[in-house]
Write a protein that binds this DNA or RNA. Structure first.
Lengths: 109, 109
DNA sequence: CGAAAGCATGCCATATATGACATACCATGA
DNA sequence: TCATGGTATGTCATATATGGCATGCTTTCG
């Protein structure tokens, strides 16, 4: 239940908009991972739109550059809590968070 | 930064729909806690609507009754990850999760 | 060609969340 | 009355996530 996620994530570079689990993931696992990826993307976008580096963001949220990178990458070692806290720190509204999470569920429109 | 949250939560029974932080919480902390409470409520509702007990849900998500209770209570010791995983296990869609999260941001309409 | 800035990835010690268990509380009904 | 089922709350050992750090890889700019 650890290797699975990693595999999914490794395949994620590919899964641009996607959710599909051709790996052995339950729908819940898949949904969970998709959410992380969505939030990670949202984080990167928000950070870039504010023109700040990972290092700067790390300082802002009292974390480290490596962790920010992992967050944006949807690394299995980062929690959704971390993603959410970082997004909030960048001024994201809960509405915005909702959008990111919801967009995780959009099956290949 | 630990006692604060607990305090907020203890006061939360009162904060029915609310967010306001008359305690010393930053807006982000407040938003984060509100999300947890919202998700906790969503979890309880969904569980009740499916007529299952905390014990049953615990078994389903491979956890324990106490943890479910804490989740529904928005206890500081539970992560949003746990909440989300449990909701997903109860068949909640990402859209539904979005709604719960978003409703956390609704300032005393 | 360096040097510097930005990012990715691996590792590790420590902090934090988790499951499990015990216990207590409140209903309901026998 | 006392069982029984459902829930709340505390504690503890262990699992997991985190911050920090080192390192390597690209670009860009001098």
């Amino acid at each position: 239940m650890r290797a699975d996620k990693r595999k999914k994530l490794e395949a994620a570079g590919w899964a641009v908009g996607g959710a599909s689990d051709f790996l052995g993931l339950t729908p819940e696992e898949s949904a969970y991972i998709d959410m992380k990826i969505s939030l990670g993307n949202a984080l990167r976008e928000r950070r870039k739109s504010q023109q700040i580096s990972q290092v700067a963001l790390a300082k802002r949220v009292k974390s480290s550059q490596s962790r920010i990178a992992k967050m944006e990458a949807g690394d299995p070692s980062v929690s959704i809590d971390a993603l959410i806290k970082s997004l909030l720190a960048l001024g994201a509204s809960s509405t915005e968070l909702s959008k990111a999470i919801c967009s995780a569920g959009s099956e290949a429109a």
